[in-house]
């Protein structure tokens, strides 16, 4: 418990600083209202818009925990949205569209996992293949067009609905977090993942079925990416194979790293990844809301800030830097 708390301190400090900045710069940020049976306000928007990255970050945490990486999640999102929209366009029932889309995404995850485990291709290349081809497949499904979904369709509830005052995407992301945390921490899966990420060879000798666990981790990642894709598509009531999930694999990896999970694998923190995802979304929202001397800040500024955040987080986690600082202190003392 103490270890996990200590790991979470830096991300939480960063989030707190961002929130304090918002509280001062744009007081309306924390103004949450209950309108027409739903909570609304900038803070809720952050959670709502951050839901896809939160889902991706949960899966990515497990993948990175095993020492892997999944670059294809953005493309998988696009495939999920394209397939669901295409099926709805062909008058398929909503449930079928959802199940089919998620099924294909799990298959994509198993494909990635299979390349990594059975063919022993490095994860970065194995998933690069689907990152490139997946978006092509999504465009193939939509025929290169943007397929719109009837805004009255019950499918749009996934992106726009409300349950108990909370937006449905937030409910989906939080439930997914609870389910995954339960699976990972109540069974031995979490320990196995950390063991594989720590030392694959040793895990194999210890009798852990490395292949099977790797495969299931990539399958879970596929399922979560599919959910994120459905949310994105339902939210805008259209499937845009070119832009759905674009760049999001990078945001997800970033969220995981900000949350204190090292890219080299081993110990991972699901809670950290959620905090990381919220930090990333808060950054974007903050930049959108902030005005400087009466001018709004250009949204491109987001990229520059993100770059600085990534570097800072990297440096904070760098043992090398810690060693240098300690050395300087020792010399001075």
């Amino acid at each position: 418990m103490r270890r996990s708390l200590r790991q979470l301190i830096w991300p939480l400090v960063a989030l707190a600083l961002l929130l304090v900045f918002n509280a001062v710069a744009s007081p309306s940020f924390f103004h949450v209202q209950f309108v027409n049976g739903r909570l609304s306000g900038a803070a809720i928007d952050v959670l709502n818009q951050g839901a896809p990255v939160m889902l991706l970050a949960l899966g990515m945490t497990l993948v990175i925990g095993t020492g892997g990486i999944d670059l294809s999640v953005g493309a998988v999102m696009a495939v999920a949205g394209a397939l669901a929209a295409k099926l709805l366009h062909l008058d398929a029932p909503v449930a079928l569209a959802i199940v089919a889309a998620l099924g294909v995404c799990v298959a994509a995850g198993i494909w990635n996992g299979g390349l990594v485990t059975v063919a022993s291709i490095p994860p970065i290349v194995a998933t690069l293949i689907f990152m490139v081809a997946g978006r092509g497949i999504a465009q193939l499904i939509t025929d290169g067009q943007i397929i719109t979904i009837n805004p009255g369709s019950s499918f749009t509830v996934i992106g726009r609905g409300v349950i108990g005052g909370l937006p449905v995407p937030v409910v989906i992301a939080l439930s997914a977090a609870l389910v995954i945390a339960a699976i990972v921490r109540l069974t031995s899966l979490g320990v196995f993942i950390e063991a594989i990420g720590g030392n694959e060879e040793a895990s194999r000798y210890a009798g852990i079925n490395v292949r099977w666990i790797r495969l299931s981790v990539y399958a879970i990642m596929g399922l979560l990416a599919g959910l994120a894709g459905l949310i994105d598509t339902a939210d805008i009531a259209a499937a845009d194979a070119n832009n759905s999930g674009l760049y999001l694999e990078l945001d997800a990896i970033l969220a995981v790293v900000i949350g204190g999970t090292a890219l080299t694998g081993g110990r991972f923190s699901l809670l950290g990844a959620l905090v990381g995802a919220i930090i990333i979304q808060t950054l974007s929202t903050t930049i959108l809301m902030t005005t400087f001397r009466g001018h709004s800040v250009p949204p491109e500024f987001n990229l520059v800030i993100k770059a600085i955040v990534v570097l800072m987080v990297c440096l904070l986690q760098s043992d090398e830097l810690r060693r240098m600082v300690l050395q300087v202190r020792r010399v001075q003392g």
Partner: peptide, 18 residues
């Protein structure tokens, strides 16, 4: 700082594009 090239160049990507 012995950092992973993936992350450092990702930051570089954001910085240069921004």
């Amino acid at each position: 700082f012995k950092l992973p090239p993936f992350l450092v160049t990702l930051a570089g990507m954001f910085l240069a594009r921004g």
